[in-house]
Every structure is written in C-alpha cells, then in structure tokens.
Simulated scan of single mutants.
Amino acid sequence: MISRLQEKLAAGQFVLTAEVCPPKGCDCGEFLEKARKLAPLVDAVNVTDNQGASMRISPLAAAALLVREGIEPIYQITCRDRNRLALQSDLLGAAALGITNVLALSGDHISFGDHRGGKPVFDLDSVQLLQAIQGLGEGRDLAGKRVSGEPAFFVGAAAAPEAEPFELTTFKLEKKAAAGASFFQTQAVFDPERLAFFSCAVKPHGVKVIAGILLLKSATMARYVTENIPGLNVPAALINELENAADPTAAGVRIAARLAAACKPHCHGLHIMAMGREDLIPQILESVKKVKSKE
C-alpha cells in the first residue's frame, strides 16, 4: 500500500508534516486530540521515539492509534534502545498494524535524557537499520532467514543541512540513500541558503528533502539548541529578536514562519516541530501557502 506522503512526493507535490510527541504515560487523549487538529493541515504526523532520550509510550503503539483514527503517521524508530532482533520485530509489527511511513534514526544518546543510568544499545547504526528495513522488504531478516510477507515501507532518514564538515555529512547521506532512504527529514534549518546548497548536493541521489522548522519559544531555548544539539546553530540575530520581544513565543512563531517561507523554494516539503505548541502550527503554515515551492 502506497502512503499519501509517498504518493504526493512521487507526484512532485509539496508536502507538510508535523511532529507530535507521545505522552509520558498511557493516557493518549491529549496526543490524539493534537493529531486530530493537525490532520487537516498536514500530510502525515511524526510520532517520536523516546525523544531526547526521555521515556514515553511506545511510538509503535502511538502510531497504531493514529492509523486507527485515519491519520497517517510517520513512525520513528531509533537504534538507541533496541538490538537488531527488537528493531526488526517492531518493524514487522508496524507493517502488520498498517503503518507505512518509517523514519530510521540512530537516536539521541541516553546521557541527554531522564534515565541516564540506562544502557544504550546501538547494536545497529542508522544506515544498518535502513539496510535491515530494505532486507525485510525483500522478504529476509538480517540473519538471512525468510520472513512471511514483505513489508512495503516508505522509508526516510535524518539529515543535518548545517552540520560541519559538510563533506562527511554528504558521505553519510549517500550511504543512507543507497540503503533505501527515499526522503530526508532534516534537523531545524536556520539558514535557507545553506538548505539550498544542501538540496543541490543531495539531488543526484533522488531523495526528497523535507526541511525541518523549529518553533523557538524563547532566547533560552535558542541558546540551548546552539550549545547542546550538534549541527544546529541559531543565529545571534534571531536570539536577540527573541530576547527583546515582549512576547517571545509570538516572536518565535514569526521567525518560524519567515524561515518556512524562505525554505519552501529549496525543498520538497516542510516538517514543523512545535515542541508542545502544536496549536501554533496553523499560524506558521499560513505564511507559506503562496510561496512557490521547489520544482
């Protein structure tokens, strides 16, 4: 079954995705309500996997709940918490539950999260995970054994357009493309010109680029992003704009809207990360409606 996301990207249409973090608990009421409100505005909803290495409900369960609601999920799966048996097992479960879109990630290191005494796994890296997904789609597991049924996933991977040195980044992206990634969902973009450069660099690999737009809610958050997340650097001018704003969150929405509009001509879609303020996503999207998208 072809997902709506895959169908639109294949047809050259511009796509919109947004991120909703599953709850820290088994009450999914608020999570589902946020996803329902976003569903008319976006093509798919990302379900994060213990984002920031903080424990939350299984993304497999959360994504399955979205499928039940008629909302198309992008199921994020990371290498941090599972070995190759568990990763393949969860992927087969996802296929059985009607989940088509998968974003294969290494995952934030456990030292960033709320269970720092836990042991990270990283049995596979993100490229090897993509290869495992590719193998399952061909009817075999990593041990070379046959599996019943061949899951037809639409698979994506992460990318960091502003990471340095860029040559090392492109080498890893080439490997991801060769391992079956059909789209890149990027980290937050703060330099649209760098996104344009990045998109040109990966164009020969035929992978669609969905640019990440992060809602910065304060100058403190902007500084934290710059200091703690590799590959991200919030420009000083944006930090000053947040610092001097009477309403920092409103300023963050304006910044996100500007960046989204500036990035649209250089990518095949936008991925909005509102970090708990999904109610503000419509304001961000409003600004990009009339902007010409990438051909």
Rank of each mutant, 00 (worst) to 15 (best):
residue 45 V to Y: 04
residue 266 H to Q: 05
residue 160 A to H: 11
residue 138 E to H: 15
residue 106 S to R: 15
residue 227 E to N: 11
residue 154 F to Q: 07
residue 192 P to H: 04
residue 275 M to P: 08
residue 23 P to C: 08
residue 243 E to A: 12
residue 284 I to V: 12
residue 131 Q to S: 14
residue 116 R to S: 07
residue 131 Q to G: 15
residue 273 M to C: 06
residue 53 A to D: 01
residue 204 P to F: 04
residue 239 I to T: 14
residue 49 D to H: 05
residue 120 P to V: 08
residue 289 K to A: 13
residue 41 L to F: 10
residue 217 K to E: 09
residue 23 P to K: 10
residue 104 A to M: 07
residue 209 V to Y: 00
residue 222 A to D: 02
residue 41 L to A: 11
residue 172 K to P: 00
residue 294 K to H: 15
residue 244 N to R: 14
residue 117 G to E: 15
residue 34 K to N: 13
residue 56 R to K: 15
residue 98 G to S: 03
residue 260 A to D: 03
residue 31 F to I: 10
residue 167 E to Y: 10
residue 221 M to Q: 15
residue 214 L to Y: 15
residue 127 V to F: 06
residue 270 L to S: 02
residue 146 R to P: 12
residue 158 A to H: 04
residue 30 E to W: 11
residue 69 E to M: 02
residue 17 T to C: 12
residue 188 A to N: 00
residue 185 Q to A: 09
residue 166 F to M: 11
residue 264 K to A: 13
residue 109 H to A: 11
residue 145 K to H: 12
residue 252 G to V: 06
residue 173 L to T: 07
residue 209 V to F: 00
residue 71 I to V: 06
residue 183 F to I: 10
residue 244 N to M: 11
residue 242 L to R: 02
residue 42 V to M: 01
residue 241 E to G: 14
residue 181 A to R: 03
residue 163 A to N: 06
residue 114 D to A: 10
residue 238 L to Y: 09
residue 21 C to I: 15
residue 210 I to E: 04
residue 6 Q to M: 10
residue 273 M to V: 15
residue 110 I to F: 05
residue 99 I to L: 00
residue 145 K to S: 13
residue 7 E to K: 14
residue 195 L to Q: 00
residue 286 E to A: 13
residue 233 N to D: 09
residue 103 L to H: 05
residue 51 Q to G: 08
residue 154 F to R: 09
residue 183 F to Y: 15
residue 125 D to F: 02
residue 143 A to I: 09
residue 291 V to E: 01
residue 11 A to V: 11
residue 289 K to C: 04
residue 289 K to F: 03
residue 105 L to A: 06
residue 56 R to T: 13
residue 24 K to R: 14
residue 157 A to D: 04
residue 270 L to T: 07
residue 83 N to H: 12
residue 280 L to Q: 04
residue 195 L to M: 03
residue 105 L to H: 02
residue 48 T to H: 04
residue 63 A to P: 06
residue 9 L to P: 00
residue 165 P to E: 08
residue 52 G to A: 07
residue 39 A to H: 08
residue 182 S to R: 15
